[in-house]
Design a binder for these strands. Structure first.
Length: 114
DNA sequence: CCATTGACTTAAG
DNA sequence: CCTTAAGCCAATG
């Protein structure tokens, strides 16, 4: 790996994965962290999402915690937009939680496999 | 430079 | 079902 690319990797990978999440599906911070070989770095995924506001085409609403709970909802503007976007894609949300989460869950470590 | 915080997760009591 | 604790690591004061 080139040294010039070394700096970025984690955050950039997070953005790439988020871009690959199919419409109507959702994944978790932990799943992304795990895919990036850092299963305990889910917080960094969240931090990357926090910075995603400055990035184009980052569907942060498709990333929730491992229970399908919309934990990052408060960071949207307005917060309700997160649930609205999910429902528009066909994902049912009840009480800030994704219904049938197990069905819409998209795990990069399985779907992208490699 | 040290302390605190956080869009998380797992384990333990 | 509840609270703590620990691990993770960039960002912020």
């Amino acid at each position: 790996m080139k040294l010039s690319e070394k700096n970025k990797d984690f955050f950039v990978n997070v953005y790439d994965v988020v871009r690959l999440i199919p419409k109507g599906r959702a994944t978790s911070y932990g799943a992304i962290a795990k895919y990036l070989s850092s299963p305990r770095s889910s917080r960094m995924v969240g931090w990357a999402m926090n910075a995603s506001h400055t990035m184009p085409d980052i569907a942060a609403h498709r990333v929730v915690n491992r229970n399908g709970l919309l934990t990052g909802k408060a960071h949207f503007n307005p917060p309700e937009i997160m649930q609205e976007r999910l429902e528009r894609e066909g994902i049912s949300v009840k009480d800030d939680q994704i219904v049938n989460f197990q069905e819409v869950f998209w795990d990069p470590s399985i779907e992208l496999k490699l």
